[in-house]
């Protein structure tokens, strides 16, 4: 436990959201400051600063002051100051949130490469789920200071522990439908509260059916079919959002249209608003949650 140790003795380095660079010091002095405080001789300090600057592409900027740097460069100086101490743990407090989109993608890659090169534990705080998904080995989802779920990005995405995680991770988020599950003659089905006539088939092995209160499915798992064949649910396209490689469709289901699902299409199918479509929800992709929103059966996912 390091709770009662002074910050300097915890072997932790931190990159602040606002970088917290020392404005009266040059880049070299900023990066070398932890070594100076550790009483390391100037000559050795210079060598190490040059080494770290090379690693981060800051070679030509060592004599500048923070005010003369761009956002991305400041970010790198802040990382350099953290790296140079070779700590056991790095804390990154939303370090990319102040950068523009392109730079953010670039720095994301650089931090990940750095992580592989240094091999030290990095704790990275972010509100950006893309950052979380792409960078993490393990994700801890927090809400109001409480841990909602711990797992690999894949686990978190495929088997969200509760409806909060299901809605929080993923863009667009997982479709979560309120309703009840029952075992009928043809097998287990889920009947949405908004339109109980829409019976969604559940997998054969689904357990604890009486407790089920929410059904979740990822948009990209919904299979949109044309007008033909053995589709399960009928609906109409209500809204279309194209983002290039993919197309998001908001589909109003059933006769009343009281229930909408978001789907993601990759195959370039052309749809227009108002088109009738049929939707198949593969049973092996469904998640069931209880009344409190907690995941019921992993087998259903």
């Amino acid at each position: 436990m390091v709770s009662h140790l002074p910050p300097k003795d915890r072997d932790v380095a931190m990159v602040f959201q606002n970088y917290a660079l020392y404005p009266h010091m040059s880049v070299a002095d900023n990066i070398g400051f932890p070594l100076k405080m550790a009483g390391i001789a100037p000559a050795e300090r210079r060598t190490k600063v040059a080494e770290v600057a090379g690693l981060l592409g800051l070679d030509g900027l060592l004599d500048r002051h923070p005010r003369q740097l761009s956002g991305g460069q400041r970010q790198r100086v802040a990382m350099g100051r953290a790296i140079i101490r070779q700590p056991s743990v790095f804390l990154f407090d939303e370090p990319l949130s102040n950068l523009d989109a392109a730079l953010r993608v670039q720095m994301r890659r650089e931090i990940k490469l750095l992580h592989h090169r240094l091999g030290a534990t990095m704790i990275f705080v972010t509100h950006d789920q893309v950052e979380a998904m792409t960078m993490a080995d393990r994700i801890v989802v927090l809400r109001n200071g409480r841990v909602e779920q711990v797992g690999t990005p894949d686990e978190i995405y495929r088997r969200p522990g509760n409806t909060f995680v299901a809605g929080f991770i993923g863009a667009p988020p997982m479709n979560v439908i309120e309703g009840t599950a029952a075992l009928l003659q043809q097998g287990a089905v889920f009947m949405p509260t908004a339109d109980p006539k829409l019976a969604i088939d559940l997998p054969a092995g689904a357990r604890k059916l009486p407790e089920a209160a929410f059904l979740g499915i990822r948009p990209e798992d919904c299979v949109v079919q044309g007008k033909a064949r053995t589709a399960e649910l009928e609906g109409r396209v209500r809204f279309i959002e194209r983002s290039g490689p993919e197309t998001q469709l908001t589909i109003a289901l059933g006769a009343t249209g009281g229930l909408s699902l978001i789907t993601v299409n990759w195959d370039g199918q052309r749809h227009a608003i108002g088109d009738p479509v049929r939707l198949r929800l593969p049973a092996d992709r469904l998640c069931l949650f209880d009344r409190d929103g907690n995941l019921l059966s992993e087998s259903a996912c």
Partner: peptide
Amino acid sequence: PADLEGAARIDGCSRLSAYWHV
């Protein structure tokens, strides 16, 4: 910004040396 002192303390300063250096 208080973060500057926070950074200095993580970088190895005591409260007094953070005051002095930063």
